[in-house]
């Protein structure tokens, strides 16, 4: 009994902050909730969500912004990691590259908001090199607004993937690389034929983790764009927030959260399963 008593508080704490809110959200999703008035709706909220164009738009935005951001981060992180993983500075000081990740997300969002919108820093820079002639209104176009979110996310989170990829490359057996060189392989052949396939499980795990994180993108949207223009940057998290805390449709917001959780689990599970299955054969 004593051991159970020892771990009891920690378990209770975890259950209180994870299991209880989760179950509560599922329960709440079955009601139409207007503050203290709860009326049974069954699967009504879910039926409404499936027909809600804004929900599908938010899902699409999340996929577009998240997908592009993730693709860009992965490509940049992998390229930089491949070119510098043998560098002694990177070996010794790779922790330095984690700096952007250590900033508070809201601070990062404000910095980029200043740089893009309020402070016009990016516009001024682009004008000074002659790429644009007028001040750019980043929130005036769907793709420019999405680009601001992508840039902010890439800036903050590329180091996370970089550090994982550098670690994986540094952990590779140097003899294998040397054997490939003697077999006549160029650096790019070594990368495509040997390093990349060997890193596959690590890449899948890192990208999946990052992908799950990106689907919950909220802070940047809330601070930088608030879903504008015309809902083009409204991600799922922001949609749920808007439904819950702006329109006070708590049951509806809960149903959307449950659906989002379900979609995330299914997608992540499918990717990981497929990646590891084909890696084994």
């Amino acid at each position: 009994m004593f051991p159970y008593l020892l771990v009891g508080p920690a378990v209770l704490y975890l259950l209180a902050i994870t299991l209880y809110p989760g179950l509560f959200a599922i329960y709440q999703s079955l009601f139409v909730v207007k503050f203290v008035n709860w009326s049974w709706a069954g699967l009504g909220n879910y039926m409404r969500i499936i027909q809600d164009r804004e929900f599908w738009a938010a899902l699409g935005n999340t996929a577009i912004i998240g997908g592009l951001s993730l693709g860009l981060q992965t490509t940049i992180a992998m390229t930089v990691a491949f070119f510098c993983y043998r560098d002694s500075f990177v070996r010794g000081w790779r922790i330095v590259f984690l700096m952007p990740m250590l900033f508070m997300p809201s601070a990062v969002a404000f910095i980029w908001k200043l740089a893009f919108n309020d402070g016009r820093v990016i516009s001024d820079l682009l004008m000074s090199v002659g790429l644009v002639s007028n001040n750019v209104d980043w929130l005036s176009s769907i793709w420019l607004a999405r680009l601001t979110l992508i840039v902010a996310d890439v800036w903050q989170w590329t180091p996370f993937l970089f550090i994982i990829f550098v670690g994986a490359l540094q952990g590779q057996d140097e003899e294998i690389e040397e054997a490939a060189r003697l077999d006549g392989a160029s650096w790019s052949s070594i990368f495509w034929n040997i390093s990349l396939p060997m890193m596959r499980p690590i890449i899948v795990v890192a990208v999946t983790l990052r992908g799950i994180d990106i689907t919950t993108m909220f802070t940047n949207v809330y601070i930088m764009t608030q879903g504008t223009p015309g809902g083009a940057t409204e991600t799922m998290s922001y949609f749920i927030y808007r439904q819950g805390f702006r329109m006070f449709n708590f049951g509806y917001a809960s149903a959307a959260s449950v659906l989002m959780l379900f979609i995330t689990i299914v997608v992540a599970q499918t990717i990981v399963k497929r990646a590891f299955k084909s890696g084994k054969s």
Partner: peptide
Amino acid sequence: VAMVFQGYALYPNM
């Protein structure tokens, strides 16, 4: 030149 390594250095993914 071809080299045989102490740790074999075979490509594990192939």
